[in-house]
């Protein structure tokens, strides 16, 4: 395989010494099978050990290595350098999050919002362990399977223009996960979750740009999930206004 050199323009930010972000160029030898993450690791191993970024599995499962490459949020382990257009590859940290250092961002806001939608089965009455598992048919699994593939890589938050302009938005992944549990036949927490997503920091800011679903590496469809949630939350709201008695049950 032919080797060639590609210039990587990498976002640098050292909070102890820098007043703002800068870019640093590195020349990296590239083969046809080099992914962006390989190039970053080459920089760290041989050119500049101070470069900081997150990664773990190298195979699109852990969701740690998300970055903006040429402005588009991607998992860097899944993007071949040979497929990128233009002479220079620009690597930025994911957009819409505070930058801790170089390419590392802080997710605390997402983590708080994820906890808010209670990403676990809610049962009114827990069955005893001796009763065994909560069983489902293949159709019942299929109802939420796509939305359950999220690996919390946060690319959708990086792509979302609404999340970029307001904190009052639950965001794509947390919404998709909320919808995933609402559609789960074993779960009994739909009303609770719909209440959470109907708050000021819920889903109402979403304008269905749809970019979250475009960038998702796992083919989750947060954009569609949010619209479905809006319909459900809106219907629930109308029910509570028109029939307060039956809704409070």
């Amino acid at each position: 395989m032919a080797e060639r050199e590609v210039v990587f323009r990498v976002h640098r930010y050292r909070p102890e010494s820098d007043r703002g972000p800068t870019y640093q160029d590195y020349r990296v030898p590239i083969r046809d099978d080099t992914v962006v993450l390989d190039a970053l690791n080459h920089i760290k191993d041989t050119l500049d050990p101070t470069l900081t970024f997150r990664w773990s599995c190298r195979m699109g499962i852990c969701g740690s290595c998300g970055m903006n490459v040429n402005g588009t949020p991607v998992l860097t382990c899944g993007v071949f350098v040979k497929d990128l257009r233009g002479g220079v590859v620009t690597v930025d940290p994911m957009a819409n999050f505070p930058v801790l250092k170089d390419l590392v961002v802080e997710f605390d806001d997402f983590m708080r919002k994820l906890q808010g939608v209670k990403p676990f089965l809610i049962r009114k009455e827990d069955a005893p362990l001796s009763a065994g598992e909560y069983r489902q048919t293949p159709e019942q699994v299929e109802a939420y399977r796509q939305q359950s593939m999220c690996i919390n890589c946060m690319l959708c938050y990086s792509a979302c223009p609404v999340y970029s302009r307001t904190d009052h938005f639950l965001g794509p992944a947390a919404s998709a996960i909320a919808y995933r549990y609402i559609k789960d036949s074993r779960d009994e927490g739909a009303d609770e979750r719909l209440g959470r997503i109907s708050t000021k920091t819920g889903i109402w800011e979403c304008t269905f740009v749809g970019e979250c679903s475009v960038v998702c590496p796992k083919d989750v469809d947060p954009a569609a999930a949010i619209q479905s949630l809006k319909v459900l939350a809106s219907m629930r709201h109308m029910r509570r206004i028109l029939m307060p008695k039956s809704a409070s049950r």
Binding site: G195, R196, S198, K200, A233, S234, R236, H237
Partner: peptide, 9 residues
């Protein structure tokens, strides 16, 4: 947080 009234409507 309290649920919003206007937005769902």
């Amino acid at each position: 947080e309290r649920e919003v009234v206007l937005e769902p409507m």
